[in-house]
Amino acid sequence: MADGNRNILSVQDLNIGYDSKAVAKHISFELEAGSLCGVVGINGIGKSTLLRTLGGFQPKLSGKVVLHQQILENHTSSSLSKKLSVVLTEQPASKNLTVQELIALGRQPYTNWLGSLSSNDKEKIQESLDAFLLEELRHRKCHELSDGQLQRVLVARAMAQDTPLILLDEPTTHLDLYHKVQILKMLQELAHNKQKTILFTTHEIDLAIQLCDRILILDGKNNPFGNPCELIEQKHFDHLFPSEMVQFDAKTGTYKVNK
């Protein structure tokens, strides 16, 4: 395979926002198969807007998004559903679904008009259940789950959808440190073992630096993109937040509160 073909997602000079009011401008990056990428930046800088644009939920203002060698807008909705899956911040509308039912919905792009599951579908569902340690919870209702468990279920559903690209909007919010790390580790394994390209927004910059292969920093100007070490060396994290409050410590890869 030619080098360029390993790119699952390529974004060129993308401007995003609502009704010609740009939220973020000049975003460019490329993601290969099997890479885990975090999107960081302060509140309101356009992380969620970027994800919604890439997911096809809202139109871009200008620029170019190529998904799987095809312009994003040229994908039909059924082809798109086999290329990218999402984990949104919104809760599932019905929490009366069981874990297994919810994950099984991820197979919809592949099932017939009645949604009957083939043996292959069932295998994929089982794989997702196993990968996210949900076997014992499979018959539980979603309203009986903790936040961490529900988040795992939603990610498992995206995995069952079996798309080369998975987009997640703040998958770690509302979770304690242990469960934050757990989710991100699982995403890392999913990316590396199954060659999925995973893009997620997060506020956990220190965890992203430790776990991600690539990081996109939305800073309202240049929006630097690269691997975490390079970005640290180029001091891109230093000006992410107003420096009178917090200071980036390049040695540990964390932010320290100014005393």
Binding site: G55, G56, F57, S77, S78, L80, S81, K82, L84, S85, V86, L88, E90, Q91, P92, A93, S94, L97, L102, L105, G106, Q108, P109, T111, W113, L114, G115, Q161
Partner: peptide, 19 residues
């Protein structure tokens, strides 16, 4: 039937499933 089941996740999820 299929789209009704997808709507259980909410409209955005349903859309991402190709509905």
């Amino acid at each position: 039937i299929k789209s009704l089941n997808a709507f259980l996740l909410g409209e955005n999820y349903a859309r991402s499933l190709g509905v």
